[in-house]
Design a protein around this nucleic acid. Structure first.
Length: 408
DNA sequence: TCTGGGGTCCTAGGACCC
DNA sequence: TCTGGGGTCCTAGGACCC
């Protein structure tokens, strides 16, 4: 108990964030990569998913176009992402967290909140627990993480950022204001580039500036919700409890509200047939994931991004929820055709189904008829074949040979 | 040489109903 | 006959996060 402030915390929260997670996992067991910049990403039109710290020294950042990253850091080793491995390492790390506390709120593959208020008697001060978590992760998974410790989740999250890489930052309650207020407003969770520059234009540059601005003023500038929310965050007053849950729809988790898939073409296209075939592939992917999860949805939405990067969405709500690939595809195609595009060059299309509910709650009138019943059974057969033989085994006839259009 | 893919939430306007 | 308000659903877009 080196930290007297620890004792005054009614509810200490840890935010654990893996350091350059994808890049670290991808480089594990690769001594040949030691001392080299590593970038995970790919595709001719892709972006950086993760960069290790040597690559970051050259200015490489997440979400940066790969072309730019290669220019900034020609020596970088570029690795393709392997999400199966990332997921499995992530699951192991989360199991490690659960040895410390059952109150683990998983935010993504590489970060989580841990409420350790029930663990201090057994494991020591919050700082000591943070160090234990770090050594467990390092010893068992061979990667490093950073931990922020505070009484509020939002402050703990800022702490882990300040701790990076490979460190711990504890922000006791009586130091929250001193730590928060000098930071740039862009450091607040929920403030991206647009909101940051809006606030800067208003003369609100630091978190302290936001904290000292009346809530109604913030609400006029940012909207009712965000205005009030940012004011709270600026005082470190986020008292949202840590909720034990797994982000994706795993057991016990809340079902996703929507499921979608999208894909950028290898080359922009103005060929309707190419787009409609792609919509079929995407509808198939989404439908299969919905059937695996046991959910159905009523609203089908498409996204279309044009060559100039302008992006539109169109959606239509069906009379009945569906998880049938052909129904999703039909709705998506109608939405696309309703755009009435002539020579527009399309860069990306996406399909999403929203308003998901568990299938058991969908009281389909099964008198609906044979055609629909037939499609459902066809979907099940395809799902079974894919489970047995892999996703290359089965495809609608119209997709056969279609892949060349994406990679040619 | 530009800019991925998976999501969530908020806002705002219009339709519609009470 | 005129006027108003509240609630909900639908649609489109935007911002944000990892």
């Amino acid at each position: 108990m080196t930290d007297p402030a620890d004792l005054s915390w009614d509810c200490p929260v840890l935010h654990v964030d893996m350091d350059a997670f994808y890049a670290s996992v991808a480089a594990r067991g690769r001594p040949d990569l030691a001392g080299r910049p590593v970038v995970v990403g790919g595709g001719s039109r892709g972006v950086v998913l993760s960069a290790n710290y040597l690559a970051r020294e050259r200015g490489v950042r997440s979400a940066m176009p790969m072309t730019r990253a290669r220019r900034l850091c020609p020596r970088a080793v570029v690795l393709a992402p392997d999400f199966d491995t990332f997921s499995s390492v992530s699951s192991s790390v989360i199991e490690t967290f659960r040895r410390v506390t059952p109150l683990v709120e998983v935010l993504s593959l590489d970060e989580a909140f841990l409420d350790v208020s029930g663990s201090t008697r057994r494991l020591g001060s919050p700082r000591e627990i943070a160090e234990q978590v770090r050594s467990y992760v390092h010893d068992e998974q061979g990667i490093t993480c950073s931990v922020g410790v505070a009484a509020a989740p939002s402050v703990a999250k800022l702490g882990s950022r300040l701790a990076k890489p490979d460190g711990v930052v504890v922000v006791p309650p009586d130091q929250v204001v001193a730590v928060l207020h000098p930071l740039d407003v862009g450091d607040l969770y929920g403030v991206g580039e647009k909101t940051r520059s809006l606030l800067h234009r208003l003369g609100l540059v630091t978190v302290g500036d936001v904290a000292r601005t009346p809530v109604p003023t913030l609400q006029r500038a940012l909207g009712h919700h965000l205005g009030a929310h940012l004011h709270e965050l600026a005082w470190g007053a986020d008292r949202r409890p840590v909720v034990a849950r797994h982000a994706p729809a795993f057991f016990g988790g809340e079902p996703d509200r929507s499921m979608g898939a999208q894909e950028t073409f290898g080359f922009d296209t103005d060929d309707r047939d190419v787009v409609v075939r792609e919509l079929l592939r995407l509808a198939g992917r989404v439908g299969r994931r919905m059937r695996v999860a046991g959910v159905a949805g009523r609203t089908v939405a498409i996204t279309v991004r044009f060559a100039d990067f302008t992006t539109i969405t169109r959606s239509r709500t069906l009379p009945e929820a569906t998880d049938v690939t052909s129904e999703i595809h039909r709705a998506a195609t109608r939405l696309y055709d309703a755009l009435g595009l002539q020579r527009a060059r399309v860069r990306l299309v996406g399909v999403r189904v929203e308003g998901l509910v568990p299938c058991v709650r969908v009281h389909r009138q099964l008198l609906l008829g044979e055609p629909e019943r037939g499609w459902r059974e066809a979907d099940r057969a395809v799902d079974r074949a894919i489970r047995r033989f892999g996703s290359d085994a089965v495809a609608p006839a119209s997709l056969l040979g279609g892949r060349a259009t994406r990679s040619a």
